[in-house]
Simulated scan of single mutants.
Amino acid sequence: MRAGQSRSIRIGYTAFSMAVIGFIVLPLIFIVWMSFYSNKILSFPPEGYTLDWYRRAWALSDFRNGFFLSLRTSLIATVVALCLGLPASFALVRGRFWGRETVSTVLMSPMVVPGIVGGSALFVFFLEVEFLTGWRVAGTSLGLIVAHSLIALPWMIRLVTTSLISVNPSIEEAARSLGAAPLTVFFRITLPVIKPGLIAGSLFAFINSFIDLEKSIFLVGPDSTTLQIALINYLEWNFDSTIGAVATVQIALITVLLLITDRYAKLSRAF
């Protein structure tokens, strides 16, 4: 290949990569920019800039309560996913049992099943539970936590499993042969190696739970609305920069979480 052709390919590849990055990033930049418009109704160009939309978003109880509900639910779902996902990952990586691939597929299925389908299926299942036992689950905090735990669990298993595969079992066997107890081997050898996967799994489990709309829309109660549903309800009757302010806060929160996580556990090592 000639030098000129190679240079043209590099330039074309760079231009294509920049176009893809721009396609992803520019909408986010526009949302942040829009959140500072002073226009009463969204329009372009902006008449001026203000921070009033952020104050208005916090003053609205639907957004404020929805934020705290989403935050609480996502944190609990992440803890549940960690408690279930860590032993499940060990079983999938270290275990040798019949149907292991099937179990892995079932545990990963919430990632591939459309959210609307999963949410409606859970709603019907909860109704059946209520019909058979009289125990109301749909529309309660418990039902919402169960649904969000199912959202978080595959991310936890996927990233922890990836980290576990990189652990050399012979190192653990050497520690056990020298008299180390199983818990000592786990906390002193295995856990430090898989820590990036645990942190990254917890991060992505939290984020995907926090931003979920499809499953939540079937399972929230009249007095418990997540932030994403509050956004949809607000857009039904309003079209101003309050939406941009709420979205900007979410973008900032997720960005900070990514930066903090990458500071203590390089995400590139977890994938």
Rank of each mutant, 00 (worst) to 15 (best):
G66D: 04
G66S: 13
S70F: 04
L71V: 10
L71M: 14
R72Q: 15
S74R: 01
L75G: 00
I76F: 07
A77V: 03
T78E: 00
V79G: 02
V79I: 10
A81Y: 00
C83E: 09
L84V: 15
G85R: 00
L86M: 14
S89P: 04
S89L: 05
A91C: 11
L92C: 09
L92V: 11
V93G: 00
R94W: 12
G95M: 15
F97T: 13
W98F: 12
S104W: 05
T105M: 14
V106P: 08
V106Y: 13
L107F: 04
M108G: 06
M108Q: 11
M111H: 05
P114I: 09
G115K: 03
I116L: 15
G118L: 10
G118N: 08
A121Y: 10
L122N: 04
L122T: 07
L127Q: 08
L127E: 14
E130W: 08
F131S: 13
G134Y: 06
G134L: 06
V137R: 01
V137T: 07
L142Q: 09
I145L: 11
I145V: 15
V146G: 03
A147W: 03
H148N: 14
L150C: 06
I151V: 14
A152D: 02
W155M: 09
M156A: 01
M156W: 03
I157K: 01
L159M: 07
T161N: 05
L164T: 02
P169S: 07
S170L: 13
S170Y: 13
I171R: 09
A175C: 14
A175M: 11
A175P: 04
A175Y: 06
A175H: 05
R176M: 15
G179N: 07
G179V: 15
A181G: 14
A181C: 11
L183T: 12
T184G: 10
T184V: 14
T184Y: 14
